[in-house]
């Protein structure tokens, strides 16, 4: 009530100067700030500071122990002549190119499959999700076994079922990135669950009326399902881009960046510069370059999505 009162008085004061904004708009703007206030507080107190600090550090030379020394654009200039930046960036981009589309497509298809009314639905959903939960060292251990060239299950299946000699997977310069992407595919559970949840929100009448109009499976999927869940497709795409460009742990544990730098991902390099070379300044510069890359890609997705994503509730 108190809030409403103050809005009222302010409105009477302001209306004399600016006539355009309606009381409803103001009330809404006030409510907006109230609703996002937790994030604003968190940003000011905990997340914003370190981000600005890292931006500052990217213009310095800083070994954590002594105080940072200003080097201007030095780190950024050095970055362009750094052989490993190019190597690691191309490994990362290749990975993202494989992982992002496959994650989205497989995630969506699995979600649709698991949304069918079948016996043991709960079991299937849980089973498909299970590999996504296994973490860190364990998952690396499991996959280096499964994809072992000589006695791994995958290669022996390939041999027995199709008569193909499987590749060297993690130990081959050509296959190491596809192997990482394949490994990531069993961890598609997160994406799948998000799609699954979005499928639950679809209004049933639309399908029923479409069915009456004679729309069949594929047409329904393209013309009704995809537009309706497009906000979530956008979400999963952006998250997959961010996640792919920040991939690191798998390579750190399984291949140590090898063979011949082929799985030396960008963030792996960044981690090395920060924690094994103690060049926090340079690492920060690397981080901000990655930030810009991801930012541009995200903006691109958002730009494309303007034409394609359909929001039930659009406002700006």
């Amino acid at each position: 009530m108190h809030l409403d009162h103050s809005v009222e008085t302010q409105r009477t004061v302001r209306t004399k100067k600016k006539v355009k904004r309606s009381p409803k708009a103001k009330r809404q703007e006030r409510a907006f700030w109230l609703f996002i206030s937790p994030w604003v507080i968190g940003f000011i107190c905990f997340t914003g500071g370190p981000i600005i600090a890292s931006l500052f550090l990217s213009f310095t030379s800083y070994d954590i122990v002594s105080s940072p020394i200003w080097v201007g654009l030095g780190n950024y200039i050095h970055l362009f002549s750094d052989f490993l930046v190019l190597k690691s960036l191309s490994a990362t981009a290749f990975y993202a190119l494989l992982a992002v589309p496959f994650t989205i497509i497989l995630g969506l298809l699995l979600a649709i499959l698991l949304n069918q009314k079948v016996k043991g639905q709960a079991f299937f959903r849980t089973a498909f999700y299970a590999p996504s939960i296994i973490s860190g060292v364990s998952v690396a251990f499991l996959w280096s076994w499964l994809l072992n060239p000589d006695f791994g299950v995958v290669n022996s299946l390939l041999k027995q079922l199709f008569g193909i000699d499987g590749p060297n997977w993690f130990n081959s310069t050509n296959w190491v990135i596809p192997s990482m992407a394949l490994m990531q595919l069993t961890a598609v559970g997160g994406t799948m669950v998000i799609f699954l949840a979005s499928l639950q929100q679809l209004p049933k009448e639309l399908y029923e009326s479409a069915a009456l109009d004679g729309a069949k499976g594929w047409a329904k999927f393209i013309h009704i399902t995809v537009p309706l869940i497009s906000p979530v497709i956008l979400f999963n795409t952006i998250i997959a881009i961010i996640g792919s460009f920040q991939i690191f742990t798998q390579a750190y544990v399984i291949t140590q960046g090898g063979p011949d730098w082929h799985s030396y991902f960008y963030v792996y390099y960044l981690f090395d510069t920060a924690f094994s070379q103690y060049r926090m300044g340079y690492a920060s510069a690397l981080a901000w370059v990655l930030f810009i890359i991801i930012f541009v890609l995200t903006m691109l997705s958002l730009f494309v999505s303007r034409r394609l994503v359909y929001y039930e509730y659009e406002n700006k």
């Binding site: 703007e29 994030w39 954590i64």
Partner: peptide, 30 residues
């Protein structure tokens, strides 16, 4: 999602941006 306000798009951009910086470099300041 549901409220109109000036500067919302920019703020939301900042929210998204916080995910894009690799955490390895903000870890120590934090």
């Amino acid at each position: 999602a549901r409220l109109k306000a000036r500067g919302k798009a920019v703020l939301f951009g900042i929210v998204l941006s916080t995910m894009m910086l690799p955490p390895q470099v903000t870890m120590i300041p934090q």
